[in-house]
Write a protein that binds this DNA or RNA. Structure first.
Lengths: 152, 152
DNA sequence: GTTGAAACCGTACGGGC
DNA sequence: GCCCGTACGGTTTCAAC
């Protein structure tokens, strides 16, 4: 796949659409100085190239019943075994993110659950599904998250 | 602020729109069995109630030049001082999320930067801005993230 | 990239349950 | 209260340039 670099207008469009996924082509055109059609062609290119991987509504976790979140670091019980923890854990919808990390643990998960009781059950499920030890850090308060990551 | 609970249709709409922030009212109507007007009224209610806090395009960090991410735990140097680290750090755009946490550290940050060099500079900025110690865990690979968090 | 025209969509309003 | 149908203006789409 080719990789003609993003120019300033692309970055500008990405910044706007990252902040407002429903921005109209007309607004994007106004903010970039291009015509509506030119903007549309660029957006389609950005989607095709994988620069834009999707669009989502941001949902308040509290309102939909998952007010408790936590970081869970996991480490395989047997380092000799093949390690495919991400695949083994993918089916658990409470796991919002899964990163492999440098440091003592092998992976860092970010999870959302309804209650401490559900967190306990989830940790049990994770340990069992992936044969890992866990180290859980409960989130007390979230000051901000989901901030758009398109550098100026 | 009232809080009439979300019914099954609301949750269904949230699930669809969380996965596809550009889903049309027509599609939401088809998937929920309601008319376009009814769906529109519900979406507006969900936005007004704060169940939907916004819409965004998901941008590939690699493509926009921030391929390196990390978790940074921070702890105030002087526990006696008033602790307003989140406000002191808000101006740093590389910080994508800031949570206060239970455990040894006070806050967990998630950051994105272009290079190890930039990570070093960011850590220095954080220490200086908020008068904190830091403990950084570099992300080696992200298997998944941004998974929609609307429970079934 | 641009223009323009047609199809589609979001919105407001009227009405019925 | 919640829902449906319709009409209008804005938006997306795609051809031709």
């Amino acid at each position: 796949m080719p990789a003609s670099a993003l120019d300033d207008i692309d970055l500008r469009l990405l910044r706007v659409v990252a902040a407002d996924g429903r921005a109209t082509l007309a607004r994007l055109a106004a903010e970039s100085g291009l015509s509506v059609s030119a903007v549309q062609a660029r957006i389609k290119r950005l989607e095709a190239r994988g620069a834009i991987t999707g669009y989502r509504a941001v949902v308040d976790p509290d309102v939909v019943g998952v007010p408790l979140s936590a970081f869970i670091e996991i480490t395989p019980l047997d380092p000799a075994q093949p390690d495919n923890a991400p695949e083994l854990l993918e089916h658990l919808p409470q796991i919002e993110a899964c990163h492999s990390i440098a440091g003592q643990a092998a992976y860092m998960l970010f999870v959302r659950v309804a209650s401490p009781r559900d967190l306990e059950a989830l940790i049990r499920d994770i340990r069992q599904a992936a044969a890992v030890n866990t180290r859980t850090t409960v989130v007390l308060q979230t000051f901000f998250e989901n901030r758009a990551a398109v550098p100026r």
